[in-house]
Structure formats: C-alpha cells, structure tokens
C-alpha cells in the first residue's frame, strides 16, 4: 500500500517557540490515521501545515506523490476542532459557497448537497440560518461541507465533540464508510476509545516531537507486558496463590468475576509462555478466565507521554 501523504522532517517555529521539531509521518492510502497527543503538542500546527494555512519552515510534504501545492486544497477536506459557520447566512447558501471554494461547480455542489441533506434527514434546514440551529445540527452541516467535494484526504479534528452518542455513532460510521470508498483519513482526537474503534495507524506527538508511530496493532504488541488476567476455581486458593507467586510476578486483579474464584493478574517472565501458565493453572483447578491484558490506546498514550516527559 503506497502512502497518500508523506511528511518529511517538518520544522515549524513561531518566533522563538518551536511548534514542530523534525516531524515525519507517512500516511498510507485508504487508512484511518490517528494523530494523537496532549493539548499544545503541535497537532494543530501540523494539520494547518497540511492544509497549507501555514507553511513549514523546513521539511517536505508530498500528497499522492506530488509536492504539496495550492492546487491540492481541492483534494483535502478539513473539519477543524473549532467549528464555525457564518451565523447569519442560510444553511444551503453557505454550503454551496464553501463547496464552490473547494472547486465544485454550483450545479454539482447542489446535487451532492441534496444527496447528503436527504441522507442526514436535514433537507428542511436548507433555508434556515445557522444561528437558528442547535450546535449539533450545525456540526452535521459542517461535516457535510467537509466531505462534499470527495477529497482524497480528510482531516477530522475532534470530529465527535459536540455530538450526542447517536449522532457521534452516525458520524463514525460515515467516516469508516468514506475510508472504505477510498478516502484517507487523518483523525485527531483525545478520545482514546474512538481511536481503538477507528484507527488503523497512529502517530503520537508530544512537545513538538513525534514520539511514536505505526500500526495500532504493532504498537500494542510493543507495549504488551505479558500480563494475564486469571480466574481459577479451586478449593485451595491460598496455596495456589503462593505457588504462583514463587514462579511469576503476581498483582491484585483489575477485574471481577461472578463467583468466588481466585482472581489475579499474572505477569510472565521473558522466557515464560502463556501455555506454561495455563498448564500450571489447569493442574490446580478449573480455569474460568484467562485473558491477555492488551494495553489500550489510552494506556499507551499515558505511558508514552509520561515516559517522554
């Protein structure tokens, strides 16, 4: 799979402040790419550079193999974190205007808007002014405007903020659908559960530096601690626990089971395999629960950032 976007060694300074320090990110075509990082890490700076709102001081950016240039604005759709539309302009006119700025003809924009407005069941809003709509309603309009010109690259900055769970789900489905139809998506968020749900790859930016990137699965594998949640039905819980402690590292459980089984978190040593632990357990009782503790995106985020700090 080739890369749609290649960001190489980008540096951006604001006066004396370095917002991006030698950041390189490669985003494969047709993926959902999570751009993660704490507040003020440099995500927005990077997104603005991709959108050509600002220019990098150093580094190169290629979109679909070509150096990024003004003509590419039509290939990019951007939903900024700070949403906004012209308050006193009518929904339909506004959507048409923004679509035309992205290079669509008026008639084509009208046709596509009709499709999306019907899909989201908001056709009745066409002649309403934005100030008459609720925040969530305005967000729907803005989402449509972002994707209307069918860009190759979609950039969503906190796309779910301001949506209720039902609409957030709707938007999430649409985003995944757009990916399936061939769009590449950059997804910037703090909501780690949506990262798990949506992202194929991620990059983590902290204090102007990229500290981590790659496939989410690979990163998880890298961050796994070889720890297992164990639930054992045994008549001799105390003895089993002390035997376990001799062989492995044992921690109090971070989960609950229904019965009064022995529950523990067990961390294996480097040379141990999961089968060793399982064999040990099956010899001493009935295994009720045996799950590897896979680090969540949230854990990885916190761990990586703390380590970097």
């Amino acid at each position: 799979m080739s890369n749609l976007l290649e960001i190489n060694n980008v540096v951006k300074n604001y006066g004396d402040f370095r917002a991006l320090n030698n950041v390189s990110i490669h985003i494969p075509k047709g993926s959902v790419y999570g751009l993660l990082g704490p507040n003020g890490a440099g995500k927005t700076s990077l997104i603005r550079i991709i959108n050509q709102i600002t220019m990098p001081d150093e580094g190169t950016i290629f979109l679909d193999g070509e150096p990024l240039s003004p003509k590419h604005t039509a290939d990019i759709g951007y939903l900024p974190e700070e949403r906004g539309l012209y308050k006193s302009m009518k929904v339909g006119e506004q959507a048409l205007y923004l679509a035309q700025l992205k290079g669509l003809s008026k008639s084509e924009a009208k046709k596509r808007l009709k499709y999306w407005f019907e899909k989201f069941d908001i056709s009745a809003w066409w002649n309403k002014k934005i100030e008459e709509l609720s925040k969530g309603m305005a967000q729907k309009v803005q989402f449509i405007v972002t994707v209307l010109h069918q860009p190759k690259l979609l950039i969503f900055d906190e796309p779910f903020s301001g949506f209720d769970p039902i609409n957030a789900q709707l938007i999430a489905q649409e985003i995944l659908k757009l990916r399936d139809e061939g769009a590449t998506i950059i997804f910037s968020t703090h909501r780690m559960e949506s990262v798990e749900e949506m992202c194929d790859e991620i990059a983590l930016i902290n204090k102007s530096n990229k500290i981590l990137d790659g496939k989410l699965d690979d990163i998880k594998r890298e961050f796994r601690t070889n720890t297992f949640q164990v639930g054992l039905h045994t008549s001799n819980a105390k003895e089993v626990e002390s035997q376990l402690k001799e062989k492995f590292e044992v921690f109090p459980p971070d989960f609950k089971l229904l019965g009064n089984e022995l529950t523990l978190n067990v961390k294996l040593g480097r040379q141990d395999s999961a089968n060793d632990l399982l064999a040990f357990l099956t010899n001493r009782g009935e295994v009720q629960h045996f799950v590897e503790l896979i680090p969540s995106a949230n854990d990885i985020f916190i761990q990586a950032v703390n380590k970097n700090n």
């Binding site: 604005t73 990019i76 900024p80 700070e82 949403r83 539309l85 012209y86 308050k87 700025l101």
Partner: peptide, 11 residues
C-alpha cells in the same frame, strides 16, 4: 464565528 479556519484551508 470560527469559520475562518475552514475558509483559509480553501483560499
């Protein structure tokens, strides 16, 4: 109204 960021990503 914060629309500025959308506009300057197009023009």
């Amino acid at each position: 109204s914060r629309i500025i960021e959308v506009i300057v990503s197009s023009v």
